[in-house]
């Protein structure tokens, strides 16, 4: 079992003929045969050299190949439109990898999604990986192995570091979910941890946060009352100065809010074992 995606997911790639989209579509296709199509307006009717049909619209892809998930690699100025197109076509899971979308656009997109049935992961995220079954996004498949640890994180490479350490310690993963580093996004820690909590094959959970916002604190309060599965965590940004954006648009301490200390304290209070170094995580789950 897993959350969000498995070997039966029918994935399309929006922006499949672009540089990023082409590179990652090949990687996803090579990992598992879940890629059923791609979308690039104006290139419908084409078939990629690895055998995936390209459509002009997401609606066509849904009708013709039964797509139920989409991953978006289009540039920031077109990505909000791409998300809304996927939602309007009835795509159940939309994963937006694109970085640099203006916050005002994401506020509108989120409000639009409130009227639809879709779940959004991202933007500015590495996507998700259910080891051995489904790779949606850019998480390298070779560092993961199937197992029972659920991983959720706001970061990309920091997650890879933790997943790599888990794999080397012989602890496989159920699903790895990157929720992204933007201030306004789709699924948050709370929704993903609720899914892991209900997933019978996820036995342990890893939560990797960073400075900025209050998602970790809000989620920790829920975890305290609802999660019995063992959890380990890490927060990046203990040494970050206030008022500076640390790479991710959402990673900023503003008005004394969003500090690493506050998040670490809240997560500890929820019973999560907090790591000093990301590579300490496997040890804390034993």
């Amino acid at each position: 079992m897993s959350i969000l995606a498995d070997k039966n997911t029918r994935l399309i790639v929006q922006g499949i003929t672009g540089r990023e989209g082409d590179f990652h579509a090949r990687q996803m296709h090579a990992y598992s045969p879940i890629v059923v199509g791609g979308v690039t307006p104006g290139k419908g009717g084409m078939v990629t050299d690895y055998g995936v049909p390209v459509f002009d619209t997401v609606g066509q892809a849904v009708r013709e190949v039964g797509a139920n998930a989409s991953v978006i690699y289009v540039p920031a100025r077109f990505a909000p439109d791409a998300i809304m197109e996927a939602a309007d076509a009835g795509i159940r899971l939309i994963v937006c990898i694109t970085e640099g979308i203006p916050v005002i656009d994401m506020i509108r997109v989120r409000a639009y999604l409130d009227t639809k049935q879709s779940l959004l992961l991202g933007p500015n995220c590495p996507g998700l990986l259910t080891p051995g079954q489904a790779k949606i996004g850019i998480i390298p498949g070779n560092i993961a192995t199937p197992g029972n640890v659920g991983v959720v994180s706001r970061s990309g490479t920091l997650t890879y570091e933790a997943v790599n350490a888990l794999t080397q310690a012989g602890m496989g993963q159920s699903t790895i979910v990157g929720i992204g580093g933007d201030p306004v996004r789709g699924l948050g820690f709370l929704e993903v941890i609720q899914m892991f909590n209900e997933d019978p094959e996820t036995e342990k959970i890893v939560m990797i946060g960073e400075i900025g916002g209050s998602d970790e604190e809000t989620t920790a309060a829920w975890i305290k009352d609802h999660v019995k599965k063992p959890m380990a965590g890490f927060i990046a940004g203990r040494s970050a100065p206030p008022g500076k954006r640390m790479g991710h648009a959402g990673a900023i301490i503003e008005g004394g809010m969003g500090t690493a200390e506050s998040k670490i304290a809240a997560m500890r209070a929820a019973g999560i074992r907090m790591a000093e170094l990301p590579t300490d995580i496997p040890e804390l789950l034993r």
Partner: peptide, 12 residues
């Protein structure tokens, strides 16, 4: 460092 999260963790 490659990646914002890993870069923050490296400073830490």
């Amino acid at each position: 460092v490659n990646g914002a999260g890993l870069a923050m963790a490296t400073l830490d």
